[in-house]
Write a protein that binds this DNA or RNA. Structure first.
Length: 874
RNA sequence: GGGCGCGUAGCUCAGGGGUAGAGCGUCGCCCUUACAAGGCGAAUGUCGGCGGUUCGAAACCGUCCGCGCCCACCA
């Protein structure tokens, strides 16, 4: 099909099929682009670089509409930059997604009734690699289908050799700078994934629980504490009260009997306790609560762990072996039996942390982990935005960014997983700890073992903007393409990914931020604004829509909804609408080709052109400027909307219709219009190409005979404007619209020819008589013409002979309505103009506008009254 | 608890001190030789409520109601 169109270009009347069939065109076009190397970025190029990295999709799956959305934006940005002459790199790749991928493969194993422990670490990791090999191809296939102009030769994976070197290098550097350390702290533990996770990997949600108040101690020395996690009381090592709380002053330092155990625990005074809250007494479990851990540290309390990694009670006694929830009710029951439950609140809604990967309730747990000391890194990451080196779009998101980087706790980076970058630290037989850099020998010999943990997956993706370019090697690509130009990603990973890239980029690249601009887009939602999810059943596979309506349609719909930073709803109807638009472009170009539109030769001089041609060229250049400005501001919805309306309303409806008369009349004017129409389509297709690459490529190569739109020059505003022509055509449009309305109200069928006398002499409409007659199906007046309806519009007169068939009632109704509107207008305008305060304070242009409205309304009234008088009696 | 944002046509959303906009949907006429995936015409809104600022408020300010999101060591 594509081959066909190429050949047909030389034919005198190229014939494109009547309907655009995207599915036949898109695949071959994409492969041709790749084969020709359009998307390959050359580090040796003289051109200025423009770099964007893909937010690496997880290998765990396939692309969803969110990816399609993100890729549309990135592809549009990079396609335009490529056309503008930049050496453009869109860096592709995927993320190993440690915990997510390990979970997927573990689930697969579970189907075979195996666990990863049955395989052992090495075999398991091998199995994940195998799985990655099978799954990764799916994603690149989808990206090709979408039309992503990525440099496939540079595709990277966060676990490949080079990126592993980068990870080791950065780890070592941070370690040597004492920005990475190992410490025992309370961490967020997922008892299902069996690993620590970082603070942001915990999702809080309100869960129903039970708040019980427990009486500790005996006799006079009792306190009441409240808890939602009664099972942790087995690990209590103190009671805390506010040091100034007079109620409990006497107890500070005393020992209180801990129920269900044979232990007694001290009462300590700590300012963390809010005396206003509850009883003002807090049970302290340093091994299972972050606050309690802090209190424990301050008072030198012991930490007693009472649960294992599966959240099963390990403390000796009747509760040993119970799961935390079983233990909770068992312990409450036991305490109740002892009469120690003094109050219960059930349900008690409180915020509970869940593992963002598997939704299991997090168990805070004391554990030895590796940490990044984020203080200095986060400070730099914040400053780079504060001092304007890096801009965030939309700007409202900056506040969120600052809130986070300015209040960041140290980052727990070790994971008790097998899939990921192994922590490059070795422990010797005599307690030696050695961090092994990328060029160092790994320690060998008796008793040396490597740390068994792997790094948080975001550690390696934090290096993505430079690790993909070969860092730590000082490659040509790194020199050419770092820093990246723009980062386009969802606001949902601002902290996970963007902030981490900022920290690592600034740190590793000597203060050069990884990108200058951060563009945050929203999330794709369904047509009712609901979040898309598999469980809710409203998730859509973008491939289905692409097969049905074409990638262009999906892309255009997404771009059109892309208002900065806000979520974008999408429904199948809208994709259909975009498909219709693509088809409209197709047919308009088909019309142009059939009528000899050309891009050959210079544009005719403006003096020679008709007002119609000058009008559309004026509008065209204005739209070029408008679209460019929107692109610079990442306003995808606006630019798509502007192009949609310009193309459809102005070019395809008005201009194309107006050219028909010109083409019929022939002569120099027709020749000129062929060139102008060619120009308008040439530029319009170029402007549309970044968003709808396929249909525009097919049409443009046919129209121009050139190789490809992908490497064509991006249009620039020639500066040509002709306001007089714009006003003139607006008037023509008004006349035609007005008479059409009349025709419609009169029940005249669109095709019905009506004899008419046009009195246009001395008005700017005179040159457009033929076009007006054609568009309105107005015949020459001929013999025995009798005007039965006269429409004075814009200083001219259109008199129609309806041969006595005029629907007087309908026309009277229409005119009466118009009259009422005009009278209302006059009242409103007079009210304004009679208001002295308004005249004194309103700016001139507003007053002029109102005066203009008044004048027009007065003229309208005269006209309408005349028309009403002229109507035959009903 | 703190922060951010949003409530505009049936639906999804733009707009933003000077007579209310788009897409989809609805109604009517039409297969007018680029396109019925189309053309032409039409209808539809006290711009969440109440106050205030202003000559003028849907827009700015305050407040209330409703919704969403982010952050937080709410025992």
């Amino acid at each position: 099909m594509t081959e066909n169109t190429q050949q047909q270009h030389s034919a005198p009347e190229p014939e494109l099929p009547k309907t655009y069939a995207p599915a036949e065109v898109e695949g071959p076009l994409y492969e041709r682009w790749v084969d020709r190397g359009y998307f390959a970025a050359d580090a040796k190029s003289e051109k200025s670089p423009f770099t964007v990295v893909i937010p690496p999709p997880n290998v765990t799956g396939s692309l969803h509409l969110g990816h399609a959305f993100e890729h549309t934006l990135i592809d549009a940005i990079t396609r335009r930059k490529r056309m503008q002459g930049f050496e453009t790199l869109w860096q592709p790749g995927m993320d190993h997604a440690g915990i997510a991928t390990q979970n997927v493969v573990e689930r697969e194993l579970a189907k075979e009734a195996k666990s990863r422990h049955d395989l052992g670490r090495e075999a398991f990791v091998e199995r994940v690699w195998k799985w990655k090999g099978e799954s990764g191809g799916q994603i690149s296939g989808q990206m090709r289908r979408l039309g992503d102009g990525v440099d496939w030769d540079r595709e990277r994976f966060t676990m490949d050799e080079g990126l592993s070197q980068a990870v080791k290098t950065l780890f070592k550097k941070l370690y040597d700078d004492e920005l990475i350390y190992r410490a025992e702290r309370i961490i967020n533990w997922c008892p299902r994934c069996l690993t620590a996770i970082s603070d942001i990997e915990v999702e809080y949600q309100d869960d129903d629980g039970e708040l019980v108040s427990l009486k500790y101690g005996d006799g006079d020395e009792t306190v009441v504490v409240a808890t939602t996690r009664a099972e942790t009381m087995l690990g209590d090592t103190a009671i805390a009260v506010h040091p100034d709380d007079e109620r409990y002053q006497h107890l500070i330092g005393k020992l209180i009997k801990l129920p269900l155990t044979d232990r007694s625990i001290p009462v300590v005074g700590d300012t963390h306790v809010d005396p206003e809250f509850g009883t003002g007494c807090v049970k302290v479990t340093p091994a299972h609560d972050p606050n309690d851990f802090e209190i424990g540290q301050r008072h030198g309390l012991p930490s007693i762990a009472v649960m294992d990694e599966h959240a099963v009670i390990t403390a000796h006694g009747p509760f040993q072996g119970l799961d935390r929830l079983e233990a909770r009710s068992a312990i409450v029951a036991a305490l109740r039996a002892e009469g120690r439950i003094v109050a219960e609140k059930r349900p008690y809604t409180h915020s509970v942390g869940h593992c963002s990967r598997c939704k299991t309730t997090i168990e805070p747990r004391l554990s030895m982990q590796w940490w990044v000391k984020v203080g200095p890194l986060a400070k730099a990451a914040g400053d780079a935005v504060r001092d304007g080196q890096v801009k965030i779009h939309p700007q409202e998101m900056e506040k969120r960014y600052f809130d986070w980087v300015d209040n960041l706790h140290d980052w727990c980076i070790s994971r008790q997983l097998w899939w990921g970058h192994r922590i490059p630290v070795w422990y010797g037989p005599d307690g030696e700890v050695v961090c092994v850099g990328p060029d160092d020998e790994e320690p060998t010999g008796e008793g040396w073992t490597q740390d068994s943990d792997v790094l948080d997956t975001w550690f390696s993706s934090g290096l993505w903007p430079f690790s993909t370019l070969g860092w730590p090697e000082q490659t040509e690509s790194l020199a050419k393409f770092y820093p990246n130009s723009v980062l386009v990603t969802g606001y949902d990973i601002l902290f996970f990914w963007v902030a981490r890239m900022m920290m690592f980029g600034l740190y590793a690249m000597d203060g050069t931020p990884p990108f200058h601009t951060i563009v945050l887009h929203g999330m794709v939602r369904d047509q009712f604004g609901k979040k898309m999810s598999k469980s809710f059943g409203n998730a859509v596979n973008p491939l289905d829509w692409m097969d049905k309506y074409g990638s262009d349609a999906v892309r255009f719909t997404l771009a059109r909804g892309a208002n900065p930073g806000v979520d974008v709803p999408i429904g199948e109807d809208w994709v259909q609408g975009s498909r219709n638009f693509a088809n409209k472009i197709w047919n308009a170009t088909r019309f142009a080709l059939m009528n000899g539109a050309t891009v050959e030769g210079e544009l005719p001089p403006a003096e020679r052109l008709s007002a119609t041609d000058r009008w559309i060229l004026s509008r065209l250049n204005a739209v070029v400027a408008e679209v460019d400005a929107y692109y610079e501001d990442y306003q995808f919805a606006k630019l798509s909307e502007a192009l949609f309306h310009f193309a459809w309303d102005e070019v395809f409806d008005w201009y194309v219709e107006l050219t028909k008369t010109t083409f019929q009349e022939g002569g120099q004017a027709a020749e000129d219009t062929k060139r102008v129409l060619g120009e308008v389509l040439d530029v319009t297709l170029k402007l549309l190409h970044p968003v709808v690459p396929f249909v525009t490529e097919t049409l443009w190569t046919t129209l121009t005979g050139n190789e490809s739109l992908v490497v064509a020059d991006w249009p620039t505003d020639s500066g040509f404007r002709d306001e007089a022509a714009e006003r003139e055509i607006e008037t023509v449009q008004q006349v035609i619209t007005e008479v059409r309305r009349f025709r419609s109200d009169q029940g005249l069928q669109p095709a019905q020819k009506v004899p008419a006398r046009l009195t246009l002499d001395g008005t700017q409409l005179a040159p457009h008589e033929a076009a007006i007659r054609q568009l309105l199906r107005l015949q020459p007046e001929g013999e025995g013409f009798a005007a039965t309806a006269t429409l004075p519009v814009s200083g001219a007169t259109v008199a129609l002979d309806l041969s006595g068939t005029i629907d007087v009632a309908a026309e009277r109704k229409r005119l009466t309505k118009d009259l009422a509107a005009a009278e209302k207008e006059i009242t409103a305008a007079n009210a304004k103009l009679g208001n002295e305060a308004f005249l004194a304070k309103a700016p001139d242009h507003v007053v002029d506008k109102i005066r203009g409205r008044l004048t027009k309304a007065e003229a309208d009234i005269e006209r309408i009254k005349g028309q009403l008088d002229a109507l035959p009696a009903a």
